[in-house]
Every structure is written in C-alpha cells, then in structure tokens.
C-alpha cells in the first residue's frame, strides 16, 4: 500500500444528491408517471415533517416561542424576501464567500497540480494531507480574526482556509488517476510531458476536481457564515441568524435558515449541472 492510498479521497457527500436532483429535473418532463409517484412520496414526507412540527409544542416537548408554527415561519419568509436588508446581507455573504472561494481555488489548484504532477512531493506530503483532513479547520478562525481584525479580510481568510483542502486533495488524486497504460501509450508515441499533461492527465482529473470544487464552494459559504457569527459582524446572513436568534425572534431566524438552505441547494445543483456540461464524457470513461 503506497502512502497515497492511505489518504481518504474526499467523498462526494453533498454532491451526490445535487446530481440526483439534476437527473430528476432532466427526466421529469419525459416521465410523467414516475414524476407523480415521486411527488406523492415527497408529499408524504412533507406532511410528516409538518405534522411533527405542529404537534411538538402542544405536546410540551418544546415551547412555542422556540419552535414557531410553520405557517408563521413561511409568513416571515415571504416578508423577509421582500425586504432590501435581506438581500444586502445575502450580497455581503456571497461576496465574501466568493472571494474566499477564489483564494481557495488559486492556492488549492496550484498546490494540487504541484502535488499531483511531482509524484515525489505527492507521496512525501500525503500523510500530512491526511492529518490536515482530520483537523477541524474552523479552529483557525479565531486566530485569523485576532490577526486580521474584524473586517472582511479575516472572513475571506476563514472561508479560504475552510474550503481549500478538498481542492488540493482532489486535484492531486485526480491528476494521478489516469491509467499507467495510457501514460505508457503516449510515451511510446514520444508525446512530450506537457502534452501528456494536457491531453491525458487534466481531462482524467476533471471529474474529481469538480467534486472538490463543489465541496469547496459549500465549505467557503459555511466558513463565511461562521466568521460572520464569530466576529459579531454587522452584516451577512450569519449575522442575521445570530441577531434574530439572540432576540428570540425564532420565526425570523428559521426564515433566514431556509434562505441559506435554498442558496446552498441552488448553488450545489447549479454546479452539478455545470459539471455535466463540461465533463460531457462522464460515464464513457476516457482512459
């Protein structure tokens, strides 16, 4: 077993579901009957969740103040969506998350390519990458805030640090994933290293690189929200949740959580769709 094998490849957890959703959308129109069956199941699940939600406070499990009724949350959500302040906060969060994402991609792709194309480096650092995976990156957030202050810099840095590692590892493993036979074949044609890299390694790595990129975007969003909450920031969706939660305006807090959930879901579905367009050969393996 080489050292590389001991690095657990980041498993595409959240991404598989986004993939399924894309499939569902793409095939929904064609298969009405199946769609109806699925819709029925969804309705059952929603009814079950809503039923429990309504039932809990009267049963005395939680107090109504802490768990407002679903229709109240929905009402607040509709109100909230129409206010400018929600979108300003969403914009603030999105801009920090995207900056963090950009930094994570710049550093992550560069080091991933380096580790993936220089086998010696990759093997020497693999155990440390595994160790870094086990370390919760969020613990760096307070340190970064102490260093960079309470502005946007520390938020961007937190987002980048939280998001970076999957890109590094998936790029590295992806670049190593093409078969030895394919490499030998190209070498027998005297293909230059450079051309081998672009013609073989890069296309072979893309599916895994995309998994890393998708994970990283969600992580960058999470890192941003955390930094906003930790800093006591005056803007951003993370700040909004903290604010409403602190004032026990739970219906509003839940409404913001729904907004964040929708954003995260839309982002991951969008990336899944983009991935299908770019990696059109997936399922018909190249190597």
């Amino acid at each position: 077993m080489s050292a590389i094998d001991s690095v657990p490849v980041t498993v595409p957890v959240a991404t598989t579901s986004a993939d399924d959703l894309v499939t569902a959308f793409l095939t929904a129109g064609r298969r009405h009957r199946r769609f109806r069956a699925v819709a029925g199941r969804v309705a059952i699940a929603v009814a079950l969740v809503l039923g429990t939600w309504y039932a809990l406070p009267p049963l005395g499990v939680v107090e109504r103040v802490f768990l407002p009724a679903p229709h109240d949350v929905l009402g607040r959500l509709i109100e909230l969506v129409q206010t400018a302040s929600l979108w300003e906060n969403a914009r603030a969060t999105a801009s920090v998350a995207l900056w963090g994402y950009a930094v994570a991609i710049a550093i992550g792709l560069t080091s991933g390519v380096l580790l993936g194309t220089v086998p010696f480096l990759g093997r020497a650092l693999a155990p440390y990458l595994g160790a870094l995976q086990a370390l919760p990156k969020v613990v760096f957030a307070p340190l970064l805030i102490t260093w960079l202050g309470f502005g946007n810099e520390s938020k961007v840095a937190t987002a980048a640090i939280v998001a970076m590692l999957p890109i590094v590892i998936d790029t590295m493993v992806g670049l190593q994933s093409c078969s030895d036979d394919a490499v030998k074949l190209l070498r027998s044609y005297r293909t230059s290293r450079w051309r081998t890299f672009w013609l073989l390694r890069v296309p072979a790595s893309l599916p895994l690189v995309f998994v890393g990129l998708r994970q990283a975007l969600l992580l960058s969003l999470a890192g941003t929200l955390l930094a906003e909450a930790l800093i006591g920031s005056s803007e951003g969706l993370g700040h909004l949740v903290e604010l409403y939660n602190g004032q026990i305006l739970m219906d509003r807090a839940y409404a913001v959580v729904v907004v964040v959930a929708c954003i995260a879901l839309v982002v991951s579905v969008l990336l899944a769709w983009l991935e299908r367009r770019i990696i059109y050969w997936r399922g018909h393996e190249l190597t």
Binding site: S17, N245, A264
Partner: peptide, 18 residues
C-alpha cells in the same frame, strides 16, 4: 435518499445558534 442527502447542504453554522 435524495431529499435527506440534500439537507446536508444546509451549513451547520446557521443551525447551531438555533
């Protein structure tokens, strides 16, 4: 399985205060 797995996209950061 799709519904449950989709819930994973919700960042724990916003759930934790609640």
């Amino acid at each position: 399985s799709t519904m449950l797995a989709s819930l994973e996209a919700v960042p724990i950061v916003v759930i934790a205060p609640i």
